[in-house]
Design a protein around this nucleic acid. Structure first.
Lengths: 237, 237
DNA sequence: CCCTTTTCACCTAGGTGGTAAGAT
DNA sequence: ATCTTACCACCTAGGTGAAAAGGG
């Protein structure tokens, strides 16, 4: 699918206002989404599968950009899985939100030309339920959802890539952000104009510590190469 | 050992003039150097062992730096190994030098604080004797199982961190360079002031396609974890 | 003869879900 | 009951030198 873009482009810097992002592996994401995607969270951190990957266009080839992701609660509910009906049921209000974090793409910062040359893959991003994470922590400011503020410390590019902390049995929407690295001295004052955000609804998921829906398990085994050991026959190579 | 510094520091930018680099694993390097270090070069590219690693100090924590390496012929000779005397003999003049290349550290550019925080390791650097370094045919990574190919260009551009081309049976001196990323518009005109170079004599080596000195082979097997399969007993951990 | 290339068994390193035990 | 953790076999991915084969 094509970019579900963030808040209105009004007043955006020209270096980001034409930026576009196409989600890769869209048909796989949709196959999972139809069943209700689940993502494992562990203490040590677990990769997402499918991996969040985008193809970028509309960047200034010569300008510097930082790419990052964060994860937004889709509602304030806690869920449980009803095995008898094979469906998710709301089960009370959400637990206190985990400390918001962002994950910078490890290649950040880089030129627009470099980002657009190839598919950008967030395959090193890991999800955890461990609140005590010694990695550098960068607070997620609630920019984008109505608010037009930039996270502090984005421009200095902390170059830390902490794990993302989520609550199990809660639903999340991954978000992807393109941030123009403004060389102006006073760039903080233009920060709200220098980024553009993308949300792909087909990438939303339920965080779990163990898979609940057996059809999700089977689709993971069938499509994730690292789970090949659990495949039975081979219907199609 | 401490930094063998490059040409005189006269006229260097203050962002690099105090930079210092300490070679890590110095005793291992010296142990190899006493025997006459050999490094394998292959068509596909081979890592160095020991890995070139340095601890940096004296950088401006808030300034941006690029770190890179290159390899300088130590003389204009070609060598051959005399097994009867277990020694290297000069055997004519050097072959035409391979196209000079540099290897940028993959984390470049980054702040001085980031570089100084931990040991900088060039463990992704690879040596090759292949003049047609078409690193372009990149194997598909995950979910490239069988025919299910990933769109090309998912991996980092091979052009940004090319393999180092060397002539087998020739001697080389690795060099390490710290380059201050000058934000000034006219920065090209100050380029000669904005870097500082380091050469550690104990890291010089002979490029080979197969080990010649059997004691070098044994020391590689004893000290490189990836060669553990060739170890016999275990005298000392 | 000297050197290079290819293939291979054997490693390191780390990503999977299954399973059983543990926690609440 | 429901959810979490620890450990495991089984994978992917790729870094070793040995040995045999190839090339001048």
């Amino acid at each position: 699918g094509w970019a579900g873009e963030g808040p209105g482009a009004g007043g955006k810097n020209r270096r980001v206002c034409h930026a576009a992002a196409r989600l890769e592996m869209g048909s796989l994401w949709e196959e999972f989404n139809r069943l209700g995607t689940e993502m494992i969270v562990t203490k040590a951190g677990r990769r997402m599968f499918p991996t969040f990957q985008v193809k970028l266009s509309g960047l200034d080839p010569l300008a510097d950009y930082v790419l990052l992701m964060d994860f937004i609660p889709l509602d304030d509910k806690r869920y449980r899985y009803a095995f008898h009906s094979s469906s998710w049921l709301a089960a009370g209000r959400a637990e206190p939100a985990a400390p918001g974090r962002v994950h910078f793409h490890p290649d950040s910062p880089a030129k627009g030309a470099q980002w657009m040359r190839q598919i950008v893959s967030f395959d090193k991003l890991k999800l955890t339920n461990n609140l005590l994470d010694d990695n550098g922590h960068v607070r997620t400011p609630l920019w984008g959802d109505g608010e037009d503020t930039m996270p502090e410390g984005v421009l200095p590019s902390p170059l830390s890539h902490p794990q993302i902390i989520l609550n199990s049995m809660h639903r999340y929407q991954p978000r992807f952000h393109v941030v123009f690295v403004d060389p102006r001295r006073d760039s903080e004052r233009f920060a709200h104009q220098n980024f553009k955000s993308f949300s792909f609804p087909e990438t939303q998921f339920m965080a779990v510590t163990a898979y609940q829906n057996h059809r999700i398990t089977q689709l993971k085994i069938a499509s994730n190469p690292f789970a090949k050991g659990f495949r039975d026959g081979d219907p199609e190579p």
